[in-house]
Amino acid sequence: METLELPLPQAQTYSFEAALDSHKLDLKPLSLETLQINITKLCNQACLHCHVDSSPKRTEQMDERTATRVVEILAQHDDIKKLDITGGAPELNPHFEFVVKEARKLGKHVMVRHNLTVQFDGNPQTGASMTHLPEFFAEQGVEVISSLPYYQEFYTDKQRGLGVFKKSIDAMRRLNDVGYGKPDSGLMFNLVYNPVGAFLPASQVGLEADYKRELKEKFDLVFNNLYTITNMPIHRFAESLKRRGGYEEYMEKLVNAFNPGAAEGVMCRSLISVGYDGRLFDCDFNQMLEMQVTTGVNGSTRHRTIFDFDASELMQRNILFDAHCYGCTAGAGSSCGGATA
């Protein structure tokens, strides 16, 4: 008896490289201006859209040997101008303050991805207090970059947990009190917006004006710039989209909004991302997807770590792309520094 073969439904695939080809874009590295280090997956929060899947239960931490190696690399490379420290809540790594101080001594611009609430929550595993952070940041002159998903309580708590908005407002006040965001203080305080759901961010300029007006009028708070970031369809956010049957629709939204101008400005062209264990990646998203930087030619390729950091080889590398990269190229673009186009 003849068997009737029914076509099986195929998962839709989204080729980012095909989009680059169709626009004749060849995205090569431009510089190593920023070294971004993800020093812990531990966080006092467990946010709905966290691409790191951070939570109070995570235990991954950059160790002293790796942190020391990061400082060595900064010292050896004048072309690395910026150190971008992220996590998790990076302050919960025991070597965080060492890295900040050493990088500042070397004259590097240091950015800390500070979630605000850690000031009050402290370390969820050791109970260590973090109330000193505003003063520490100000003494070191670091740029503070903090997520505040919206200027209203509803969206912020929906995304980051009940009570987070009120705690974030109190934490912002403590940062303002030591000078952050104030004119002429030289202490940069930037906020990050990402949509609460499966939609693209609004115009960065328009939202920044809304945030500034609302936070000033309602809470007498100030900040410097607002960065809009697109939700990446990976890990926790991707899982929530799939549970609700919205993954394909969101991906199509990103694909349809592909902007060649935004693609040319993607952050991976001027950044190297370092994992807690020292492995190198093109960005924090590739890091979470275990897409490790590989250099060399056929037969002698190898994965790269901070321990065999070779700037000239890294500048020759092929940046690794996949479907999630559409998140960085949709609409006005998205990066750790906000819109790119």
């Binding site: 969206y155 939609f199 693209l200 961010p201 609004a202 328009g206 939202l207």
Partner: peptide, 11 residues
Amino acid sequence: SQCLENGSNPD
């Protein structure tokens, strides 16, 4: 969607 992507909120 248009309203959300242009910065409006549910209020």
